[in-house]
Design a protein around this nucleic acid. Structure first.
Lengths: 198, 198
DNA sequence: CGGTTCCTTGAGGATGATCAACGAGGGTGG
DNA sequence: CCACCCTCGTTGATCATCCTCAAGGAACCG
């Protein structure tokens, strides 16, 4: 979901640029803004004690992110950083609520968006529970394919490094590499010049 | 969140009883109803290939459940069964939407509810990623404590069997038992007559 | 061409799962 | 009251597997 940019501006929203890797908000902080991506992409993740990262979601152009805590009064459960250089439009919580109150037709869109997020998270948990690395990786590749509306007959190029796949699946790089190798032998993926196709 | 029962009835909702263990809806089915618990409790879970179950959430009196797929047009991502004998009030999707459309003030409650669910799921994922059994179990115990608004000075009785805790944490019973034993020695939990206090 | 990032491989170890067996308690019916 | 069953808890031994650590190799980019 995204809210019309001009509507956001009319309520006082402003643009902000982040360079790749720059932090947008941190886990544990109080949420203050509604964010929506104009250009580029953002990544939301958790870090655990060992410094291992887990990517919860990547948000692309047009997507809003970090909204649930505005409504539930929680602190941010994750950290968000610029995955690529990006430009976001941000609106303060107070004004965002004013916007919603005066535009009740937006509520349905938010509900649908949240419903999709809940579903996606339930799926993620379901897949994480299955220990098998191959299953987890396949689930990740499938969800990426679905998200990109891929309909081609041939395989889809997977634009992630092995480390990134590891961060999405909660595995270690070496495990991802070895599992992908095995999947290649079993013709479940294609690897051409180190690039992955699924 | 829950919607006023009389309002639900006025839109044609009906009651239905389920005996403990009875299935309310199955993973993969098309959602048709809005459900809200009048009495008792329901459990939502996934089963994987090995027959291992993972409990996604337990819903108690007053809680609605299984609503997100009504909005996102997904099939159910989980199965729901009666955790205890329970009575639910159910309203068909069509009439539920009519109810919402004619009572826009309900939207905010749904948004808040969904926002909390998203947060809870993100936390779950965060905890699952941390492999350490002790960490996972502690996270589960903490979330249970938080949910039950426990403010006492002493420890809280945990009304779950070890198998249930295993299903909540994605571990095996034996691992839960051994880990709890260790936590007992480290004074992190109390176990009196096989009962767990945290 | 030098540096950086990413990929790859091997060896070894830690740990949770698995399997098998038994114990303890509670309820039921004879 | 006792025998039985059923569920839940417990323990030990073994196994499979993913993680860890260490070292290089390959690709890419200025």
């Amino acid at each position: 979901m995204h809210i019309d940019i001009n509507l956001l501006y009319s309520f006082g929203a402003v643009n902000k640029r982040y360079t790749k890797g720059e932090i947008i908000f941190r886990e544990g902080e109080q949420p203050i803004f509604y964010y929506q991506i104009i250009d580029g992409s953002a990544r939301m993740f958790n870090t655990n004690d060992d410094g291992k990262e887990f990517t919860q979601e990547i948000f692309n152009q047009g997507c809003s992110f970090g909204e649930p805590p505005l409504f539930s009064d929680n602190r941010y459960p994750c950290t968000a950083i610029a995955y690529e250089n990006c430009e976001v439009i941000k609106l303060s919580k107070l004004l965002f609520f004013e916007l919603i109150d005066t535009h009740p037709e937006l509520a349905k869109g938010i509900i649908t968006l949240f419903a999709k997020r809940i579903n996606a998270r339930l799926e993620t948990v379901k897949n994480l529970i299955n220990q098998k690395p191959e299953f987890r990786i396949a689930a990740f590749l499938n969800s990426h394919k679905t998200n990109s509306n891929f309909l081609g007959k041939h395989k889809l190029f997977i634009p992630f490094t092995r480390q990134e796949i590891a961060n999405f699946t909660g595995l270690r790089v070496e495990t991802v590499i070895r599992t992908l190798q095995k999947m290649k032998e079993e013709k479940k993926v294609e690897i051409i010049n180190h690039k992955i196709y699924y």
